[in-house]
Design a protein around this nucleic acid. Structure first.
Lengths: 235, 235
DNA sequence: CGTCGGGTTGAACCTAGTCAAAGATAGTGG
DNA sequence: CCACTATCTTTGACTAGGTTCAACCCGACG
């Protein structure tokens, strides 16, 4: 196929590089595009009236940023790079077109949106009814699973964010996070060295988190391929 | 227009009546349709592995139930009627068709999905960084606003759910909920009689919740009209 | 070498949870 | 219509898990 006969949504999209600490968007910015992380890591956060911030999520390769802008056309949360990162830029108009022209695209976009709210709900559940140590275990297992999906080690990984951010995400103080990591290390469940984590005892961590079964939440097909092209056929 | 030339998504959809305590769907059910509450009230909840339940939301007239099934095709949460209720049944295939044929439909469906995840995020923020009394105040103000939008009193209303459910929603125990209501009454912010609430001091409640401004989160156009027909033009 | 952001650890305090008992309410059946 | 029961609600006393405040440590960087 010739490049210029391809519908807009089939062309590879542009990319954007972010250096550590650089912000991708800020709450209140007008929403034009979705972003898919291709490398590095971001954090998303909302700011409350009094100025306090709460981290709402951490995104690594394959994760989507910016869905919060769809509703009002303004971003509801900010996103900044935890480490140097690169993202694909998917103009939202293009996504809409894609969704109208391809039944699979429509399906995928809706699933992506729905999944986002399920993730929030699951996290809500964690914040609402788990003890601090259980939240921490869940957090670590979640990261482990996500790194594994990227083909990386599920036992050894580096958390790109400071204790403060982990605390904010889990509804805890940074001191509690620090104490918990120390305690879990003392109890032999993991090894921690600054931001480097080495999970040693998965069964124990799962038991702590209250997971009976290996909690594999559905992995959604990515909406873009490695080159940043919107998917048009399954898998 | 003749009824039989209307596209499927323009025909009034069916309804379903639920008696108090009856369940609309259960986690694991296969997902076929979205539901829009037309009267009464529902609660949605997720069940964790160990059997504990957490309420994820309360739906009153105009609210949508069932978005959680879109991702996997299976409902992730259950929904039961708090009081006798009626819902419109929107077969999901029909929604998809509507979304493909009408740009406005596509827009509205996406906004609805996105709004859902923003709501979850906002609630996450509340669970993660607010004290119990602040969560309670926010909860009451939210209900007040929603009743007001339905043209009902924003000061006097009846909470259809037991303390236990409020607690579960807010990440608190039923005793704490009870104590908080008693305390807020003692402090003159409201009057409580069983499940009947009368908000007396909005400024104080807002101050408590940490809301500087009157927190009016965007009201999304309803996706169905009063007869259960999918909207095709704004407003 | 000093400073600065991030991390660890300790002690005191406090919020919300737990356990327990009694009071209200609503629903049921005689 | 009333009595009985089940459920919901309130309140108290006690406890524990997390926060707060504060000191100290470590490594990076000018």
């Amino acid at each position: 196929m010739d490049a210029d006969v391809l519908p807009a949504h089939r062309r590879a999209c542009s990319r954007r590089r972010l250096v550590r600490g650089e912000s991708l968007c800020t709450a209140g910015d007008s929403f034009r595009a979705l972003h898919v992380v291709s490398s590095g890591a971001l954090k998303c956060f909302v700011t409350s009236h009094n100025g306090a911030v709460q981290i709402t999520g951490f995104q690594i390769a394959g994760d989507i940023v910016g869905l919060d802008g769809i509703d009002t056309g303004l971003h509801q949360s900010g996103a900044v790079a935890l480490v140097d990162a690169e993202v694909f830029v998917l103009p939202f108009a293009q996504c809409k077109q894609w969704s109208q022209e391809s039944a699979y695209g429509q399906h995928l976009l809706m699933r992506t949106l729905a999944l986002e709210s399920i993730r929030s709900q699951r996290h809500m559940l964690a914040l609402g009814m788990l003890r601090a140590d259980q939240r921490m275990a869940l957090f670590l297992l979640d990261f482990s699973l996500r790194y594994e999906r990227l083909g990386l080690s599920r036992t050894k990984f580096v958390l790109g964010m400071p204790r403060q951010d982990i605390g904010s995400y889990l509804g805890l103080t940074l001191e509690t996070v620090s104490r918990l990591l120390s305690r879990l290390q003392r109890e032999g469940m993991l090894q921690v060295q600054g931001r480097s984590i080495d999970l040693l005892d998965f069964p124990a961590l799962r038991r702590l988190a209250g997971l009976l079964t290996e909690h594999r939440c559905t992995a959604l097909d990515p909406i873009v391929d490695g080159m940043g092209r919107l998917a048009v056929t399954p898998r």
